[in-house]
Design a binder for these strands. Sequence first.
DNA 1: ATTTTTCTGATTTACGTACCTCAAATTTTC
DNA 2: GAAAATTTGAGGTACGTAAATCAGAAAAAT
Lengths: 357, 357
Amino acid sequence: MRPTVHDIAAAAGVSLATVDRVLNQRAGVRNVTREKVEQAIERIGFVRDVAAANLAKSRVYPFVFILPSGDNSFMRGLEAHVHAAMARGPLERMAISIVKVPAFNAEALVGALDEVRETAPAGVAVVAVESPDVIAAVNRLRAERIPVVTLVSDLAGSARDHFAGVDNVAAGRTAASLMGRFLCSRPGPIAVLAGSMRVRDHRERLDGFRAVMDKDFPGHMLLPAIEGQDDPVLTEKLVGAALAASPGTAGIYSLGAGNRGLITALKQRDSAPPVCVVAHELTRHTRAALNEGLIDAVLNQDAGHEVRSAIRVLKAKADGVAVIEAQERIYIDIFLKDNLPFDEGDEMQKPEQGEER
Amino acid sequence: MRPTVHDIAAAAGVSLATVDRVLNQRAGVRNVTREKVEQAIERIGFVRDVAAANLAKSRVYPFVFILPSGDNSFMRGLEAHVHAAMARGPLERMAISIVKVPAFNAEALVGALDEVRETAPAGVAVVAVESPDVIAAVNRLRAERIPVVTLVSDLAGSARDHFAGVDNVAAGRTAASLMGRFLCSRPGPIAVLAGSMRVRDHRERLDGFRAVMDKDFPGHMLLPAIEGQDDPVLTEKLVGAALAASPGTAGIYSLGAGNRGLITALKQRDSAPPVCVVAHELTRHTRAALNEGLIDAVLNQDAGHEVRSAIRVLKAKADGVAVIEAQERIYIDIFLKDNLPFDEGDEMQKPEQGEER
DNA sequence: ATTTTTCTGATTTACGTACCTCAAATTTTC
DNA sequence: GAAAATTTGAGGTACGTAAATCAGAAAAAT
């Protein structure tokens, strides 16, 4: 049987009340006594029964997710997963709430972070925007011992506890590696399609992609990035124009949110020589395109994993329990048409009105 | 606030004792009363607080993992992960134990399953061997409402609750797809290296591999499978011989446990024309070979994920709680040298004395 | 040495559920 | 309609921890 607080009291030769004072860092214990108790805890290997403690405290964990608003459908998918977690929240004594802020707006994010801090939550998950002010705001949360997890997009230089997301440089490198090998030394320039170059994860992907392309497949020229602003119509137009301008284009790396427009553009040139396409995020559109052979590979980050991982980490941090690092590492999933997961139960991956990302 | 048993009693107009009798399916309640209580539960949306219930019951979950013995290092890695879970077991009221049976011995497995059943565990995870007797033994467990999860290797036709493992046919298909594209229409036969063709997951991988090769890359002949019995020395000899016999070999698919011998054999022919190699399971040997360019891609199943997933599912089933299907799907990880996870905290992936699988 | 302050002990209640006992009420059986 | 059997109610204790009160002991300050 696991030792209990009573066992500590007995082992330390003090009363239950004193043990409680030490355990819950209440005032009114001399240092000598405190040390005696702490040694006893160490000696008998006591670990607090978190479930019982929560029951006694009738504790709920108020967790806050700060997400960008707007119609980025990857983010909307992420939000759907947070909602799913909210629904099962009560079962695990969690009260998850969502705060939305305008995308890529550091000032608004700082405001949200500070407001959230006032409510003294048990943990905060945030899709970070890079800025010194945001770093400072996150650090203010940490200064009040509120656990912070960055989601999807990390915040380098901050005191955040954890990052729940993929290594985007590695993702870009992998995309280049696949692309280069799939091209089979067929020459021709490579087009890059992004939403906007002002987003860190997109920049990182491009950096990784370019690094491997330059090093391992130097024969290919990288065309300047097309910025489709995640707009299907605009993207289709720009991609069509780019392909017309460089008819010899050998490959396209779609590292952002423009897949739907990209796919439409690709369909309109079926007689043209094939182009090797590597895209990000598995949605119903990219899935279909993979199956049709329009897209050769899709790199995916599992939003559901990211959300659940963030919650697990927040809870562990709130409880002062160690996290299983290996469990919380988010892998880049590589999908070819041959290892697509079955559809069932996949609603979350393909938001209803969602575009491709 | 969540409704409690007291709320049920009030809502149904009965006493706490009666609510308790209904909730815990004790005898001595008329059907009319039972229905009244059940309707009240439904109406106010009561869900049992599992943590409090477990506390009251001082419940521990005795889970049993039945693993094959022998020196298959993938299995030993799996066992290490089970041990890791055992260590954190008490924290979550779990008492995990391991039963080892001779590998691929259906009779021994049946004996183990029946013996385990006697101990009335809260759940059983088993690396299945395919046989009607094993199916029957698993069904006997299920008949006593003991949750059963198959691990790594599934048991088709049984009443097991869940399979914690990858889709090996899809893995084989993916390997073929990568291999075919990486070969860039370079001709030549393809060698297949297996441990033994009597294992279901190996067979499935080969089936998937062959299907895609025949369909999408019909130019390549598949050489008969080399069975290296997971022995490094034997494997090295056989692979060396095979490469010498077919000097034009374009690719090697290592679908089993022979990676260490394979790598040694590959190193001894550095002047020979390059061979495209796709292997299974990321270990320190395959990782190094990836980095050196000896292996082109590694497909991996994350043993840690599988173990933790199995435990989560067993616990959920034992509690009568729904599982999050999307969370429990084990993906095939594809590793190129560009997306290898960092080393830190990776001990479990590379068992100390472990060979390549 | 006395007062004040600080520390410690003993005890109680609570969290939500499980499980037990005993008596009372109700239904069934003859 | 009485006896027997079944069903229900009321109440308590327990699980391991938190949090509180209040009295008493020890230390510090005067």
